[in-house]
């Protein structure tokens, strides 16, 4: 089968592009680009999942891919865009601790460190070229790069995107442990959606005075007239 030969290369290319997108998330200054990059990153995960379906014939991964498309490629980015339109902020120029060049430098070190550590610990069990090993290195690196993004960004909404990218890292890793029960991926996505909604609502609040905040909450139909959540 040609597909079987192409799939590993396919997966590798996607994994590398995932790392690249992590780098962009660290350095991009425009909020629109951040969301777009996140969307692209999630799409890469879908491609990886499809590659794995070919390779390992776990049809459950198709479900994971479908779920990712619905939630991360479409749902969550749309939600974040909605929030962005409301807060009228286009650019995220505020950084704490580190500016993007330093962060990129640090992420290079992170990738190297993760690679060396994992290579030493896992060398007995896995060949250095096995997909599990690669997935773990790149997944954990992406998680750490996302963490870096969460740390250096000051605006809550870009922090959310950093968090989402971390979660993508976990998913990228989890994809390679194919026997992991599917319902877990499902519940994690639900958890993610709640979290994004919640933080987005609060993010709207954080950049406004209280009166304005409450009126905005009403705009989102989160406070009904006589009390309680809608």
């Amino acid at each position: 089968m040609i597909l079987n030969d192409v799939a590993p290369v396919w997966i590798r290319i996607c994994l590398i592009l995932v790392l690249v997108s992590g780098g962009f998330l660290l350095s991009s200054r425009s909020l629109k680009n951040l969301v777009r990059t996140y969307q692209f990153q999630s799409f890469l995960l879908v491609l990886i999942a499809l590659g794995l379906v070919v390779l390992e014939e776990h049809t459950i991964l198709l479900l994971v891919a479908a779920l990712t498309v619905v939630s991360k490629v479409w749902g969550i980015p749309a939600c974040i865009r909605l929030i962005q339109e409301r807060i009228h902020i286009q650019q995220d120029l505020k950084f704490s601790y580190l500016r993007p060049p330093g962060a990129l430098m640090l992420s290079i070190l992170i990738i190297l460190l993760v690679y060396i550590t994992f290579a030493q610990i896992l060398e007995k069990l896995y060949a250095a070229s096995s997909l599990f090993f690669l997935g773990s290195v790149i997944g954990v690196s992406l998680v750490l790069m996302g963490l870096l993004a969460v740390c250096i960004r000051r605006m809550a909404i870009s922090k959310v995107i950093g968090y989402l990218s971390m979660e993508n890292g976990v998913l990228a890793f989890g994809l390679f442990v194919t026997e992991l029960p599917f319902f877990i991926e499902f519940v994690i996505v639900i958890d993610l959606i709640i979290l994004v909604l919640l933080t987005s609502i609060m993010t709207v609040g954080i950049d406004s005075s209280i009166e304005e905040y409450k009126s905005r909450l009403e705009e989102f139909h989160l406070l009904s007239e006589e009390g309680g959540i809608a």
Binding site: V20, G23, S27, M105, I108, L112, Y115, A128, L134
Partner: peptide, 22 residues
């Protein structure tokens, strides 16, 4: 301007890593 350079630097280092890793 160093930001731009840093992106180039990041990509080239990444290239070397990946060449080593794969």
């Amino acid at each position: 301007i160093p930001n731009l350079f840093m992106i180039a630097f990041f990509f080239s280092i990444l290239t070397i890593f990946i060449e080593v890793m794969l």
